[in-house]
């Protein structure tokens, strides 16, 4: 029984740790499939985290916090889309600037709440509030609705991209904007919507960190998860299920690192903290070594600006 609880708790904790990566990664995956490379994921996540926390603290509503975070991420993405799609700014430079902007903006927004734990969150979400329930139930309580939502989003995005007509059009735009335009597709509109979706998901990922996972606001609390999400998208060869595998791997190593500390494995804590990042990158590089597969799976128009001829 104790073993079962342990295994289950590792599994659950892995899923929990993977959730913010899934949200952010799925959003970026959709944006990149439409041919837009947005390196501002980290910045959009941070703004989402700060705005979500602030909105929750002000209104007291968990759902309003999430919605505010989604909106904040989308607004950041709209700014990026305006610069890169309409004004044809360089996508890489604009994305990096967006991240830098997001770091500063989120610190400013979150200033009044820095280090204050979130209060009044829905009880069912929090394992700590369920101390008196049996061990197994405690473990399952870790799986809050956001975890389920993230995994549902994987299924939805995968089906959207592979099965739906709109998903096909989105992939076509990412493959060749010129050909899609010649076929009468509104390339810029589709890219705008895809980037907006990416921002909304990044905002949600941020709120997931500050309202559910941690739950508190700390400056720079994403700790590079936005970058990991970006890397996951590439190494997953733009496929939602591979992205999920990468996110779970990251989650698992994060948890394993805590467990190792609990078992008294003495190691430099700083070195140990790099392990999830290192392990995820190494494994994904090994998986996606096949250059031809990578080339065929990559959206051919990724990062290339498109200006309609008329």
């Amino acid at each position: 029984m104790a073993d079962l609880v342990l295994i289950l708790s590792i599994l659950v904790a892995t899923m929990r740790a993977a959730t913010p990566l899934l949200f952010a990664g799925l959003g970026e995956l959709v944006a990149e499939r439409s041919g837009v490379l947005n390196l501002g994921v980290e910045g959009m996540m941070l703004v989402g985290a700060a705005v979500g926390f602030a909105a929750h603290a002000v209104t007291g509503s968990f759902v309003l916090g999430l919605l505010a975070a989604i909106l904040a991420g989308a607004v950041m993405a709209a700014l990026f889309a305006l610069l890169t799609l309409r004004l044809l700014a360089n996508q890489v430079a604009t994305g990096l600037a967006l991240t830098i902007f997001g770091v500063g903006l989120s610190a400013l927004i979150g200033l009044p709440w820095a280090g204050v734990p979130a209060t009044g969150l829905p009880a069912a979400l929090w394992p700590g509030l369920a101390h008196d329930s049996p061990a197994l139930q405690q473990v399952l309580l870790l799986l809050d609705p956001l975890v389920w939502l993230a995994f549902a989003a994987v299924v939805a995005v995968d089906r959207f991209l592979r099965r739906s007509r709109a998903g096909l059009t989105l992939r076509a735009v990412g493959e060749s904007a010129e050909v899609a335009h010649a076929l009468g597709t509104k390339v810029l509109r589709i890219r705008f919507l895809a980037v907006l979706f990416g921002g909304a998901m990044a905002g949600l990922a941020g709120a997931d960190l500050s309202l559910a996972y941690t739950p508190m606001w700390v400056e720079n609390m994403t700790a590079g998860r936005g970058w990991i999400a970006l890397a996951l998208v590439v190494f997953s060869t733009w496929k939602p299920w591979w992205l999920t595998a990468g996110a779970l791997l990251f989650g698992f190593v994060t948890i394993a690192q805590f467990q190792a500390e609990a078992f008294g494995l003495s190691f430099s804590p700083d070195l140990l903290a790099t392990l999830p990042y290192l392990a995820t990158i190494v494994v994904l590089v090994l998986i996606s070594r096949d250059a031809t597969r990578l080339r065929l799976a990559a959206p051919a128009a990724l990062g290339k600006p498109f200006r309609p001829s008329d």
């Binding site: 096909l168 992939r171 076509a172 493959e175 060749s176 050909v179 899609a180 010649a182 076929l183 065929l296 799976a297 051919a300």
Partner: peptide, 8 residues
């Protein structure tokens, strides 16, 4: 010259 999406 065909307008086709190669990876589709």
């Amino acid at each position: 010259h065909f307008s086709q999406f190669e990876t589709l």
